[in-house]
């Protein structure tokens, strides 16, 4: 069902009108994990719009390179590299590589993650480890590596984590990601406290549904049209408005903000009424929206 014509849908400015001046990150390098595609690429492009040079980290070097090319088109320097964020030595080496190529990493965006709808009973130990450790261990290892370098140099900084709108409610049919994304949000608050004395700010955006080429529902036959109407805001998110908010938390505009988890989901996670469609267990709705057949 489409959003009725008499409903009013709030929309953001277009991509080429960012909310901050082009030079707000000038002279700074941002490292974006999982920055080659999807939401990481949206973060990277938002930082680039503010003039940051971008180190694009991905599991796949090819995908990181493809993303880096799109980011470079915005007029900044980029460096693409491959890294498994679950391995501390690999993370340290990637920071070295980024700094050799572009200079000291001044800002960090943790986006690396994997996610796919699956019944809890069908999550193999390998799949559980992959999804939870990329997000949980990866965010920890990259953030701690970043913080050690900044503390040693006596310099403050800013980290932004990509969390998700389902972190406070659970996400039946997506148990690994439900656990992983909440860990990112709760570690955000504690790391912010740990590193506040060193001037390092840590915030997160709990993002709703921002369709992109590699999102699960982005591949739906018939596109995302039918998904717009289920969200209170009357639309799915435009991926650049997610990138902007993530980058904005790292600007001096929000210079006093730390330890915050900002929900940006068009009200999706809050939707509730006394009368709702009958409850259907995940294993009986494999063909519906968010299904996996």
């Amino acid at each position: 069902m489409a959003v009725p014509a008499h409903h009013i849908v709030a929309t953001p400015p277009p991509f080429d009108v960012p909310p901050y001046p082009a030079g707000i990150f000038a002279g700074q390098v941002v490292l974006v994990t999982g920055g080659g595609s999807g939401m990481g690429l949206a973060m990277a492009r938002a930082f680039a719009q503010g003039g940051a040079d971008v180190a694009v980290m991905g599991r796949s070097l090819d995908r990181a390179r493809e993303g880096a090319a799109q980011i470079a088109a915005l007029g900044v320097r980029t460096h693409a590299m491959s890294c498994d964020v679950r391995l501390p030595e690999a993370v340290a080496a990637a920071f070295d590589e980024a700094e050799a190529a572009l200079g000291p990493v001044g800002l960090l965006a943790n986006n690396a993650g994997a996610n796919f709808p699956v019944l809890a009973e069908d999550i193999s130990p390998n799949a559980w480890s992959a999804v939870t450790r990329i997000a949980i261990d990866g965010t920890f290892l990259c953030s701690a590596e970043y913080a050690r370098r900044h503390i040693a140099a006596g310099e403050g900084g800013a980290i932004v984590n990509n969390s998700a709108q389902y972190i406070w409610t659970g996400f039946p049919g997506d148990a690994h990601s439900a656990a992983a994304k909440t860990a990112q949000a709760t570690m955000t608050r504690k790391m912010a406290a740990d590193w506040a004395p060193h001037g390092i700010r840590v915030n997160a955006v709990a993002a709703g549904f921002f369709p992109h080429a590699t999102s699960n529902a982005g591949q739906r036959e018939g596109g995302i049209e039918e998904l717009q109407a289920m969200i209170p805001a009357g639309r799915t998110g435009s991926i650049w408005e997610f990138g902007w908010l993530a980058a904005m938390t790292c600007t001096p505009l929000f210079g006093a903000m730390t330890g915050q988890v900002i929900v940006q989901d068009g009200g999706e996670s809050l939707r509730r009424s006394l009368i709702m469609p009958d409850y259907v267990p995940p294993r009986e709705r494999a063909d519906g929206p968010w299904g996996w057949k």
Binding site: A10, P12, P13, S238, I262, Q264, D265
Partner: peptide, 8 residues
Amino acid sequence: DYAAYVTG
């Protein structure tokens, strides 16, 4: 409007 997708 930059926060058009932020409500609640």
